[in-house]
Design a protein around this nucleic acid. Structure first.
Length: 655
RNA sequence: GGACCUGUGGUGCAGCUUGGAGUGCACGCCGGCCUGUCAAGCCGGAGGUCGCGGGUUCAAAUCCCGUCAGGUCCGCCA
């Protein structure tokens, strides 16, 4: 409904701007830009003329000596119409004449001869002292020419980066007038999201959204640099392409030249990049737009951006190293410090310890196995294939209503029940408060406390059931009772490896590929493909950050014989496989190198480092949950003429 | 396809439980005053199909049914 009200530490976020300016100085050096005194008086004068048409106070920038900045980062943003950015004016500029352009963030009037205007651009806000008779209002676009001066004693504003100075002796040119904004252009107000999207150009003017856009740009640049540095070659692949028969629902685009035929917009460049490996590209990457016609969520949009990558003559370890380099570089750009190397855990270990294949490593509360504690128990509720617990620190204060709610949630998630134990007591000893306590033997009671580490004030949650169910339920409670928002520091990446090859069976009894049908089985498990396929591990791996899945990849099958075995296990007949993936299999007959790859979601990565709960906050023009764009009205109805040209006919109105 | 939450001047909210005149708060907007403010201050003013439709009732923002829009989640996302 509304955007997250939680912000990262204000001392933290400007770093991304600092990084951007650093990068710009590099660019500047490389293209040989010098100095800063580059402003063109004639164009400034033209703008003064357009200001006059608005009937506003007409300033001229002629005559006065306008001085630029020595700072190269500022210099590269200088134009014919400005010499400095609003947020970068400081004591170094005192006594200089500067020219600024920006939007009126706020105006404070003090009668006929004095008014303060806070001028805003994407770098920040600076106070301009202007004549009170000039008609400037919120969001007017101004060019201000004036002299930087130290503020009078006691008038400094420490909450403003430019608060030690102000712009005096201002000549103001109104470059454009503006209607009052539909909502305040500041971060403090949470505005209804549909209002924000309908006026996205105003919404994006807000400092936080500017920060998000620039953080994204800086992180993508860092990722590109990391891939280039590692010898990768960026190749663009088609958006108008052939439908992939498996996986996510794809968008279809009608062909005008081939009436009745359709292109598909790719859910990912998966098949293209494997063709590029056969083509000898060796190391491919792409900042690729992917399109999936599936229901939207906070972390899912129809169109999203992935860092897509594939490399030849590599193993899983190589891929993990390449991608680690890219995301750690991006993280460093975002936070100013490089995270430690990314830990690796296996899928089954992740499930055992955290109850999920996307573990949030920012906090403990790991699942504890109670199999030995209740191996010979009399408690019928605890005789199950798996018994596990989590300890909720300070959880004993949860009321009975809340605990009943937890039990219901456990049942909703498929468990037969949930046992809870409040750990109570003090000096005279520790005891358990629970409906089940009287069924426990003294040894079980003691061992339960030992194994979980339960101390007075804690709550122990125990689930006994099938292994998968136990893990899912406790993993859920671990997050619900101990978790924190995804974007909250610290940032803990994790590699999860050795995913199972197959994810159960479909209604026809065929195995379902957990990743995709070209995933290489684990080298030790190839024989199991026939004897015990559900036990086959794959060479597929996921990258996780703070409990969000960022992406996944795998070592691909490049050999006919293994591919046939996997297709057979998936119930894909040879002829059918040829029909669905024929061009890829054909390609593989012309010399396929061993290859492996990965892809991760850049929107999610940036959202987390931006401290956002939704990727919509780091996408310039996102869609609503029902797939509409309130700004443009998309999707819209096409008229019959356009439809006819595309070879389409309108279906009869439903109902 | 399903569950839950939300919808009240431009913005953010309160009012809904227990029906009684579009009642209230803050911001913004318009006009006036004001030479050191910075979420400026003071005075005055304008601005509403209470998302939409139906029902109950003497009377509906409030209760009931339906519907639309937004959000979160389940399904779905190899």
């Amino acid at each position: 409904m509304v955007a997250s009200a939680r912000y990262p530490d204000p001392a933290w976020w400007p770093r991304c701007i600092a990084v951007v300016t650093t990068a710009m100085s590099e660019v500047e050096q490389s293209i040989g830009v010098e100095g800063a005194s580059m402003h063109d008086r004639s164009s400034a004068a033209e703008m003064a003329g357009s200001g006059a048409q608005t009937g506003a106070h007409e300033g001229t920038s002629g005559g006065a000596e306008v001085t630029g900045s020595d700072d190269q980062a500022v210099a590269i943003l200088a134009t014919s119409m400005r010499t400095v950015m609003c947020g970068q004016v400081d004591l170094h500029h005192v006594e200089r004449r500067v020219q600024l352009c920006g939007w009126v963030a706020r105006r404070r009037e003090h009668g006929e001869h004095l008014a303060f205007v806070d001028l805003r651009d994407h770098t920040g806000i600076v106070q301009c002292v202007i004549d009170g008779s000039v008609d400037v209002r919120s969001e007017y676009v101004l060019q201000v020419t004036g002299k930087v001066r130290r503020r009078p004693e006691g008038m400094e504003n420490p909450s403003l980066a430019t608060g030690d100075v102000e712009i005096g002796e201002c000549e103001v040119v109104v470059l454009a007038r503006a209607e009052p904004p539909p909502f305040p252009v500041e971060d403090r107000v949470d505005v209804d999201e549909v209002v924000r999207l309908r006026n996205r150009y105003v919404d994006l003017r807000r400092p936080r959204m500017q920060r998000n856009l620039r953080l994204r740009s800086a992180m993508v640049a860092a990722i590109r640099r990391a891939m280039e540095r590692q010898g990768f070659c960026e190749v663009e692949t088609p958006l108008l392409w052939s439908a992939t028969p498996e996986g996510a629902r794809e968008f279809a685009v009608p062909s005008r030249l081939q009436p009745g035929a359709f292109y598909a917009l790719p859910q990912s460049p998966q098949l293209a990049k494997q063709l590029l490996m056969v083509a000898g590209v060796d190391r491919y990457f792409q900042v690729a737009r992917c399109l999936r016609d599936e229901d939207l969520r906070a972390d899912r949009q129809f169109e999203f951006t992935q860092l897509d990558m594939e490399a030849s003559f590599v193993t899983q370890d190589d891929v993990l190293r390449f991608i680690s380099e890219a995301v750690l570089d991006a993280a460093e750009v975002a936070t100013g410090e490089r995270p430690p190397p990314i830990p690796t855990l296996t899928w089954s270990e992740s499930l055992d310890r955290f109850g999920t294949d996307k573990p949030d490593l920012r906090f403990d509360m790991e699942l504890v196995d109670l199999g030995t504690v209740f191996a010979n128990t009399e408690v019928r509720a605890f005789s199950a294939p798996t018994v596990k617990a989590i300890r909720v620190p300070e959880g004993a204060e949860l009321g009975r209503n809340r605990l009943d709610g937890l039990v219901q949630t456990a049942k909703d998630l498929g468990a037969k029940g949930l046992a809870w134990f409040r750990v109570t007591g003090g000096a005279e000893g520790v005891s358990l408060d629970s409906p089940l306590d009287r069924f426990l033997s003294p040894l079980e009671r003691q061992r339960l406390l030992e194994v979980t580490g339960g101390e007075p004030g804690d709550l122990l949650l125990v689930v006994a059931d099938e292994h998968r169910t136990v893990c899912t339920v406790l993993g859920h409670f671990r997050l619900a009772l101990g978790g924190k928002p995804v974007g909250e520091p610290p940032f803990h990446f994790a590699w999860v490896v050795e995913f199972p090859m197959f994810d159960g069976t479909d209604p026809q009894g065929n195995l379902v590929a957990a990743h995709h049908p070209f995933t290489m089985p684990h080298v030790d498990d190839r024989e199991l493909l026939v004897s015990d396929p559900l036990a086959v591990r794959s060479q597929a791996y996921d990258l996780v950050l703070n409990g969000w899945e960022l992406g996944s990849g795998s070592v691909r099958i490049h050999r006919d014989d293994i591919q046939r075995e996997v297709f057979a296990a998936l119930g894909i007949e040879e002829e059918e496989g040829r029909k669905r993936f024929g061009f890829l299999l054909d390609a593989f007959r012309h010399g396929a190198p061993p290859h492996a790859g990965f892809a991760f979601g850049i929107d999610r990565l940036v959202a987390i480092f931006a401290g956002e709960e939704s990727i919509r906050e780091v996408i310039a023009f996102p869609k609503t949950q029902s797939g509409t764009d309130p700004l443009t009205g998309a999707p819209s109805v096409l008229n019959d003429k356009v439809l006819a040209e595309l070879g389409l006919r309108r279906a009869a109105a439903p109902g």
